[in-house]
Write a protein that binds this DNA or RNA. Sequence first.
DNA 1: AACAATCAATACCAGAATAGTAATCTATTT
DNA 2: AAATAGATTACTATTCTGGTATTGATTGTT
Lengths: 145, 145
Amino acid sequence: MLRIGKLADYGLLLTNHLAKTDKPLNTTEELAAATHLPLATVRKLLKKLVDAHIVDSTRGVKGGYVLARAPSALTVADVINAIEGPIAVTQCTGHGGGCSLSQGCDLKDNWNYINQVIGTVLQQLTLADMAERVSERVIRFRDID
Amino acid sequence: MLRIGKLADYGLLLTNHLAKTDKPLNTTEELAAATHLPLATVRKLLKKLVDAHIVDSTRGVKGGYVLARAPSALTVADVINAIEGPIAVTQCTGHGGGCSLSQGCDLKDNWNYINQVIGTVLQQLTLADMAERVSERVIRFRDID
DNA sequence: AACAATCAATACCAGAATAGTAATCTATTT
DNA sequence: AAATAGATTACTATTCTGGTATTGATTGTT
């Protein structure tokens, strides 16, 4: 398994669309139509993306959404983070202690390391990358360890 | 987020213990005591590990469990796989099609790639590694892309 | 042969997390 | 003022996960 929720996935779908379109502003309805997602869900997601300063919003007639930065300055990790909170493979890694076994967990340090590796991978993928095919050497591993 | 379930985590706890102990056979009770996990849960997990040929079991009086292979020949990915099924970051990647958007998902290929990268990372970590500290350069990235 | 220890298999239940929906309020342009 | 579009909040339903209980099968011991 090891998976992200649908909503985070949807979030990427939305930001990906925003990265590719050239319209100055996109309404919720346009986005819902483009991604085939239910309107109410799109609203919920956009709220989180706005809160995380990934997209900017304009209210009123002629309002809508745009990416807050260039696609090359926004990462997959940013989006997942905005929608599901910090990337944490296990319970340990998230908050300040974690699993019920608390004191005696031998694996904690290792999980933190794994977590960092995966986090770094996701942080190296920008929305600009995602708009293309990422099959090449987009990820650089020298930064990881 | 992006996390594995508690059960997969527990599975690693169990296999980690088996990797470190020198007893020829370990009963469910011993394992439950060592990991501080409920007995019934340990049973359930061991069954999955047996099915996946990660541990071997012996029945009857003086029965118990051992790792089926050397710790250096078993990976973190193996264990997660046994307990939660194949690593699949998104719905797309798992089965043969996936997300409701089916036909038109631009991101599918990229998710597959990301998935593969993360999978490879987890496949490079053996139980022998996990028994130590993994802070060094255990992961080799030349195999990834 | 009987008994006890130990794993095997199945089915069930409860709580949490996720996903999805609805309704109302606020802001801006014309 | 009216219409358009985002902001906010609260609610609900379904799925998933984690945990438990029960009964059966196998093997060693006395």
